[in-house]
Simulated scan of single mutants.
Amino acid sequence: MSPAPADTDTLAFVESPVQLLNVLEWAHTSARTERPADLTVVVLAPRDPMTRGQLRRMAELAREEGHTVRWEEARGGTAAPLRTIGGLTPLLRRARRVVLGDPFSRYVQLLLGLTRARDLVVVDDGTATMEFIGQLARGERLVRWHRHGAGRGPREVLFAPVAATARRRLTPGPEGARRRRTVALFSSMPVEAPEGMTVTANDFAWTRSRFGPPRPTRTADIVGTSLVETGVVDTDRYLAAVARLARTHGATRYFAHRRERAGKLHRLATETGLEVVRPDLPLELIARRGPVGRLILSFPSTVVHTLPLALQGTGVQVAVCDIDPAWLTAHASPRAQGFLDDVTGTARDVRRLGPAGHESGV
């Protein structure tokens, strides 16, 4: 674990490989308009082995770019949260700017309550950014889109003051205010930021300069999703949809999402004949590095927004398959279908496929 220097200019908190990728993209873009940030990336390590593995690889890339990486076993036992927060508090007090990848994270919300930084930057945590911006603009409490219902259990009630403070910190201060707080968004998502929040487009310039271009193959690839694992989509319906996509478009490989369960993936490989690939880096880097299919097929997810940017000029096409409402489970959030439709409908430079896997007339 590398300690942060005493004069840390910018602290970034990440909990997933995609968040760390977007911090690197932000640092690359920021260096064009201002002096390079003295950046310390704090990895609040999750328990999931696949996520940890990808984060380790992304941490190596961050160090190669000259950034400091501090790995925190933030969930390593009951005492870990107190130890982690205690160790980070002095750094938070000194940092001029804080960059965060998941404003819904309770860990991040706790840390936001401790910082004196007047400049906050939110980088994409995938499609969750779209929900975050909408809730912030409407003044709602921050709740992940796939959470069922609007009820608040004892833990939510206990944590409510911390969450409310975090939401206030993430709301830009009024113009002309003394020691005005600024909040910026660095995003590849199609969002309209609330008044006072600045938005910088993430065009994946660092990824395109660092990797590839790839060599497209003659076949198609399918991108996996964790919609089954989050309780949104029925397992059998999902596997049937993947099989249809593979048959219709001649797909040979299935790039598994880091959260997909091993049992489900074994069944998928057996029933569809697809080669299941467990990427060691975020898919944007895997695809850019290549080889990659001439056509990449996905269900509604972050990659339908990011892959067209990362693969710009390569000739690789991205297609998104709609989610049939009949695929949703009884436990799916009432907001699920609308949110998934919005993810698909706002994607740029992609082919739109119906639930059966054929071109959509929408």
Rank of each mutant, 00 (worst) to 15 (best):
S187N: 09
A80R: 07
P172T: 04
A128L: 12
L136F: 04
V199I: 10
R348T: 10
S209T: 15
Q19Y: 00
R179W: 03
T68I: 06
A193T: 08
L265G: 06
L55I: 00
P90D: 12
P334K: 01
R210H: 04
P3E: 08
G101C: 01
T270E: 14
L44Q: 08
P174N: 12
H28Q: 11
I296Q: 07
P36T: 02
R253F: 05
L21E: 12
P3M: 10
M189T: 03
L307T: 04
D119P: 06
T248A: 14
R32S: 13
T10K: 08
T8K: 00
T219W: 11
A347C: 04
P279R: 11
V199G: 01
H305A: 02
S105T: 06
L340W: 01
D124H: 09
E131F: 02
R116H: 07
A12W: 10
L91E: 10
R152A: 15
R32V: 08
W327P: 05
I85E: 12
T115R: 01
D236M: 02
L55C: 04
P216L: 02
R178H: 12
I323Q: 04
R351K: 08
A251N: 08
L21R: 13
L44E: 12
H148D: 13
A356R: 13
R258W: 11
R35S: 14
V316A: 07
V98G: 08
F13W: 09
R94Y: 04
R63N: 05
G86I: 12
H146A: 12
R288L: 09
Q317S: 15
V18N: 03
G126T: 03
L88G: 06
V122Q: 10
V350S: 00
R335C: 06
